[in-house]
Write a protein that binds this DNA or RNA. Sequence first.
RNA 1: GGAGAGAUGGCCGAGCUGGUCGAAGGUGCAUGACUGGAAAUCAUGUGUAGGGGAAACUCUACCUGGGGUUCGAAUCCCCAUCUCUCCGCCA
Length: 422
Amino acid sequence: MLDLKFVRANPQVVVDALAKRGNKLSLDSFLQLETERRVILTDAEAKKAQRNSLSKEVGKLKQAGQDAEALMAQVRALGDAIAVLDNRLKEVEDSLNDCLLNIPNIPHESVPVGKDDSANQEIRRFGQPPVFDFEPLNHWDIGEQLDILDFARGVKISGARFTVYKGLGARLERSVVNFFLDLHTQKHGYKEIFPPFMVNSNSMLGTGQLPKFKEDMFHIEGTDYYLIPTAEVPVTNLHGGEILEAEQLPIKYAAYSACFRAEAGAAGRDTRGLIRQHQFNKVELVKFSLPENSYAELESLTNDAEDVLQKLGLPYRAVCLSSGDMGFSSAKTYDLEVWLPGFNNYREISSCSNFEDFQARRANIRFRRSNNAKPEYVHTLNGSGVAVGRTVAAILENYQQADGSVKVPEVLIPYMGCDVIA
RNA sequence: GGAGAGAUGGCCGAGCUGGUCGAAGGUGCAUGACUGGAAAUCAUGUGUAGGGGAAACUCUACCUGGGGUUCGAAUCCCCAUCUCUCCGCCA
């Protein structure tokens, strides 16, 4: 969420920035409400100050054994007036807050302006798409032929967009998770976190999934629990409401979790294969940074995510998302897109974002530069490091061989205990 | 799931027979004095958010969260959450 004072002082900056996202938002009613808020607040606080001092008078009179009835009646009337003001104030503040929670983040100046993904900017490429001397298969065909992915039974026991991994398929999924975690914790300096897969609505509010994107998530009926759509939610909220010390920053966490997404708006898209599932695995990287370092941290975070693809030998490209294609909470996002021969195209496998203080303000995550300094908001960042299911799909498709087997990438052989899936 | 106890400032901890309590005391931290330097000691300061003010400063709110009683609530009542103990159950 944006800073109320900032919006009040720079409404045009906000409107312009949001226009870049294709968001035609008027702040007129918002600013009017904000003016009303301060008028009521000043009035209510003056009356409260009066009530406090008169109540003290009552106390003194009573202690002196004198009659305080007249004064008490006066304060009672004052109290009624305050109640009316407080009620109106709450209404105004609620709607102001509601506005703020629904305003997306302001894109960073380096973000290309455009209405959708057609304006995204390719930053760099790694590797060459493999050339096959046979007709390459989709990963779902490879998986079924090798009997390591069972889509039909996934549908039987759960429904569409659920898949069962079997044998070396299950082992491959687990190997990829372990490889990612080992690399990030041992080589890139992240601390491993294993978070809860369900969180409360307050955490969802903190990272920006709520209130706007309720439909995208699974909610446990009769409770305040949501299945996490990404480990970003529990891990970023780890420090919610805390004041960190500047020397602790940057804090770098790597977390494996299952991720659950309702995919409400994606009916009919990517229905086959592992690309779009209701449940998938992901290793997420999360950083808490000093404001002045967050863009350097975004670059290194993205590089850390790229490293896993490089070590796996998977061709990919890095893309800077345009203002119209970015997520709600993000100020700048790089997507990594892996080459999938079955699609004959690149597909998103990681998304690395700097949220600046947008999430930190919602989740109230702050730090102090020195002992008696005022707390400031940290900058939060996160990125997939990377999506596991799509990695497995990419390995199957890029490493398939003419005889139907799949070579195991060099770095995974120790995890797999074999060098080919046949 | 049943019974009971509890939640106070960075931390510990008093207050909880309602008014002088933003809250004793300790500790931590900061600044200064002392010292060749440090320790110890002494002095002073030290929560957050919001409103007003050029500033000094001042007002309001916050003692887990939400309601209520009252002229007035950290203190009384109700609800929720969490923690601890005992019992039950369970991986």
